[in-house]
Simulated scan of single mutants.
Amino acid sequence: MAFRLSNNLIGILNALTFVLSLPILIAGIWLRTRADGTECERYLSAPFIAIGVFLLVVSIAGLVGACCRVNCLLWFYLVAMFILIVVTFCFTIFTFVITNKGAGEAVSGRGYKEYKLGDYSNWLQKRVENDKYWNKFRSCLQDSKVCKKLQEKKLDQSHFFQADLSPLESGCCKPPTSCNFTYVGGTDWTPVTTTSLDTDCQAWKNDGTVLCYGCNSCKAGVVATFKRHWRRAAVISIAFLVILIIVYCVGCCAFRNNRRDNRGAYRGGWKQGGGYA
């Protein structure tokens, strides 16, 4: 009964994982090969393909190992699951560590917050300050048309100043409040002479391809968005980690029962052979 319960459960779980891996892998290949795909989409395709291939290989190993009593495949499955548990645990701890600092700053008379890059962890700061990474982030921002959507809202000054802007809209689609630029509409601002020491004031351009994409405030907006998403991912990963540990324990039971069954079959065959001789 124990053998059937553990092995059948592992088989069912891996059959579901196998089915799940196919759309993930297909989505990654589609993003990579589509003719009109953006650079951002091609960049995002790599994680999809990697996760899809990993789930596909591991699920096949677990399915065959549990249902066909192939111990070497089940052993490979358990090793892969153990590595996944360790990686998930490390990712969860790492995520909580790098996202424990930084928050938007309220601005007097404004409904939105402003974001300062120096408020966040050094690791996140270094990622967006690196031109190699930032060029990809910037490409993704332009592809997502965040600022264009804000422009299309055509808010007047009073409504714009009271709008609850996202970190990306606040950091990338407008100049910092300290610049004291005059709001015209959408993403159009009239620069004025300012005594502000904020270098973002000189980086701002009304050109839709420039705006504040080169500003530290935009980088801070990206980091703030990452922090929000990674915090949610960390909470989800805790639940995922518990599930992985449970599945791993069931897999260990299946592996132990496989060995016991194979050992029993070997001894039975040896005895039968000896009796025959």
Rank of each mutant, 00 (worst) to 15 (best):
Y133Q: 01
I10M: 09
Q142H: 04
L63R: 03
A66L: 07
V250T: 12
H229L: 12
V192P: 13
T33W: 12
L56K: 05
V57A: 06
G251N: 15
A224N: 07
K132H: 13
H229P: 00
A106G: 10
P176E: 11
G118P: 00
C253R: 09
G273L: 15
A2I: 14
V250N: 14
G268V: 01
T209F: 01
K205C: 08
G102H: 08
A203Q: 10
Q272E: 11
W134T: 01
P23G: 07
Y276P: 00
V19C: 10
R69E: 03
I238F: 11
Y213S: 04
N216T: 05
C68A: 08
L124I: 02
R127M: 11
F48E: 00
Y213C: 06
L22Q: 09
N257E: 11
I93L: 14
C212W: 00
L9R: 02
M1Q: 12
W123H: 05
D198W: 09
Q125K: 07
G37T: 00
N7G: 04
L78R: 12
E105Y: 14
W270H: 10
A277G: 06
D36I: 05
I238E: 10
V250Y: 13
D188N: 12
R263K: 12
A66G: 09
S108L: 14
T38R: 02
D36S: 14
C90P: 00
A265M: 12
A163P: 06
A265K: 10
Y115T: 00
I49V: 13
P23S: 12
D207A: 01
V87A: 15
R231K: 13
A239V: 08
D207G: 03
K153Y: 03
C173F: 03
E105I: 06
D261L: 05
C68F: 15
N130E: 04
Y183K: 06
R267Y: 14
K116A: 06
C172Y: 10
W123Y: 09
W123S: 11
A66Q: 02
N180E: 04
I98L: 07
D164M: 05
C90A: 11
T99Y: 08
K227R: 09
